[in-house]
């Protein structure tokens, strides 16, 4: 069956313009600290401005997570991170399930490790359909203080398998979903960081439907409800409110148009609290599944219909 992937070009053009702005705006990536450091270097000929300028920018984001998306960040080598994530039910039932807090929840445990510089690997287990994930993130580029590298870029890949005992999958390969994401971020100032993240989700198994038409040889025409591949793009930002508190904003826009069951965009906002070993994010958004491929492909919560839900991400770091 021929696959038709219809792409919303307006979204791609918008993303391209945002990316261009990130790259070309002069002085855009210099934080106050970096600018001060540079002026300090100008005053001190004995210092080594080259080495300082080539140093990577610190703390573009404080965590590997920004709400439902990954950030460009890869912790330092030999860091072990435990993630504990929770998404409650939607708030639209009001007091009946106490704004979703007593409704069906979704929980994820993640175990991450950084075995070598720039590479994070991990495995996680999510309550929804007993989904196991294996994933990796590699830091391809790191924004430098001098601006010679204007953005940080990381590549994230995730394979997810649904292990729930049910009869929907004739083949075990049908249980698999894959997710690729390119994370492009820039620390624009000491207070503000921004990330653009195009992604591709591949789902091995899709539902079909009969169109009601027949072929020349009298057979019924079968179409796929959704394409196997789904493109999307995420825009995320962090505003630093204090040294330990940040405001997080995120928007995920589906790009691929399917025959039916088009997923809805996700709009989310949250607060982030950082300590030496913990990061705590509390959020209001639309994504329920936590698994990135499922979030992007199957989200049917619509913010226009008030289908928001409360969630949190808690991470604990250990350095070995």
């Amino acid at each position: 069956m021929k696959t038709h992937i219809i792409i919303n070009y307006r979204i791609i053009i918008t993303a391209f313009i945002v990316l261009c702005l990130l790259f070309i705006t002069p002085g855009f990536g210099q934080t106050d600290q970096q600018q001060n450091a540079q002026s300090q270097n100008d005053e001190q000929p004995t210092a080594s401005p080259k080495s300082s300028a080539r140093k990577p920018v610190k703390n573009t984001f404080e965590s590997i997570w920004i709400l439902d998306n990954q950030t460009v960040m890869v912790p330092i080598k030999k860091t072990f991170e435990l993630d504990f994530m929770h998404r409650f039910g939607t708030i639209d039932n009001g007091y009946q399930d106490f704004f979703g807090l007593f409704a069906g929840t979704n929980i994820r445990f993640g175990f991450n490790y950084v075995p070598i510089d720039k590479l994070l690997v991990g495995v996680s287990f999510t309550e929804y359909n007993l989904t196991w994930e294996g994933y990796a993130k590699y830091a391809l580029l790191k924004q430098t203080q001098g601006g010679s590298i204007p953005v940080s870029v990381s590549y994230y890949v995730n394979a997810a398998v649904d292990t729930k005992k049910q009869g929907d999958y004739p083949h075990s390969s049908d249980r698999w979903m894959f997710f690729h994401q390119l994370l492009i971020a820039r620390k624009i100032s000491d207070k503000f960081s921004f990330q653009v993240a195009p992604s591709l989700t591949h789902v091995n198994s899709v539902q079909g439907f009969y169109t009601g038409d027949t072929t020349a040889d009298g057979k019924s025409v079968l179409e796929k409800e959704m394409h196997h591949d789904h493109f999307a793009i995420a825009f995320s930002g962090k505003v630093k409110l204090s040294n330990t508190l940040g405001l997080l904003l995120n928007y995920d826009q589906p790009i691929t148009k399917h025959n039916v069951n088009n997923p809805n965009p996700n709009l989310s906002a949250g607060l982030e609290i950082n300590t030496s070993s913990h990061t705590f994010q509390i959020l209001l958004g639309n994504y329920h599944y936590i698994t990135p491929s499922r979030n992007n492909y199957y989200n049917h919560n619509n913010y226009k219909d008030g289908q928001w839900l409360i969630g949190f991400n808690l991470t604990r770091l250990w350095n070995f």
Binding site: D32, N36, S276
Partner: peptide, 15 residues
């Protein structure tokens, strides 16, 4: 100087 103290203050708050 100011830039170093400001950076140190941020790390102090976190760690």
């Amino acid at each position: 100087e100011a830039a170093s103290i400001s950076a140190g203050k941020a790390i102090w708050a976190k760690h």
